[in-house]
């Protein structure tokens, strides 16, 4: 299978604090990988290292064979291939939903505005928010904002989508609408890496689950292996705490 991301011995320190202590893994095309683990286990930092939002302290991250943290790498070009969805949505509040979505395609890719708008409409239909096209983000609910954020990332037609706890900042009744958009994406064959506390989603949608604790990748396997027959004691303890 075509490998999208390869991580080799990735470490990350914040001063004295070791957040990542040598992570190795890879993600293949069309794979959905969920990263679970207790808070402070380094999941988000790990994800943010993948598109260079965080500098790595050691090891390397290859996206389509290109090293993310190399000085000579055009990190902007690389990031345009990697969609990212944040916990706090981070929509641009001074732009309409439409402009949020068309900004990157027109400025980074040079897509003609009309074409970018056409694509934005298609994406908004997909996330069920076409009627909000001229709205400003602050007039939307959290769930709606997150769906727009997903559409915004998709507009760059990325090779992989990274989700950093996409439902953690949402009211419970809005979690479902975001997860169902993500599930549709997965079913369409999008390569995805999801940091999440939504175990139901991981079990239903993921091809593979990674369990992280204290900056280490403790265990990985299919959802059945991780949730039903965890090999490691730490995984068992974590799962019994949350389920």
């Amino acid at each position: 299978m075509d490998e999208v991301i390869r991580v080799e011995g990735l470490t990350k320190n914040f001063g004295q604090l070791q957040v990542l202590r040598g992570i190795d893994c890879s993600v293949s095309s069309s794979e959905v990988v969920c990263v679970i683990g207790p808070s402070g286990s380094g999941k988000s930092t790990f994800l943010r290292c993948l598109n260079g939002l965080e500098e790595a302290s050691g090891g390397r991250v290859l996206v389509h064979g290109v090293s993310v943290h190399d000085n000579s790498t055009d990190v902007d070009a690389l990031r345009s291939e990697i969609g990212m969805v944040f916990q706090r949505f981070n929509l641009f509040p001074h732009m309409t939903v439409l402009d949020n979505i068309t900004l990157a395609p027109t400025k980074v890719r040079g897509v003609p505005l009309e074409q970018a708008r056409e694509q934005a409409r298609a994406l908004l239909i997909k996330v069920g928010l076409l009627d909000k096209i001229e709205t400003y983000p602050n007039q939307l609910s959290g769930g709606q904002q997150q769906r727009v954020a997903i559409a915004r990332a998709l507009a760059m037609q990325p090779a992989i989508m990274l989700f950093d706890e996409p439902t953690s900042a949402l009211d419970p009744e809005m979690v479902g609408e975001v997860l169902s958009v993500m599930q549709t994406l997965a079913e369409e064959g999008m390569t995805m890496m999801v940091v999440s506390h939504e175990m139901g989603f991981a079990r239903r949608v993921a091809n593979r689950v990674l369990f992280m604790d204290e900056g280490v990748l403790v265990e990985e396997g299919t959802p059945e292996e991780i949730f039903d027959r965890p090999r490691e004691e730490r995984t068992r303890r974590f799962l019994s705490n949350i389920l």
Binding site: L53, F92, V108
Partner: peptide
């Protein structure tokens, strides 16, 4: 907010 910069940079904007 730093998140604004991160969102923009992660879309590939310089």
């Amino acid at each position: 907010d730093r998140g604004q910069i991160e969102a923009s940079r992660s879309l590939g904007l310089s």
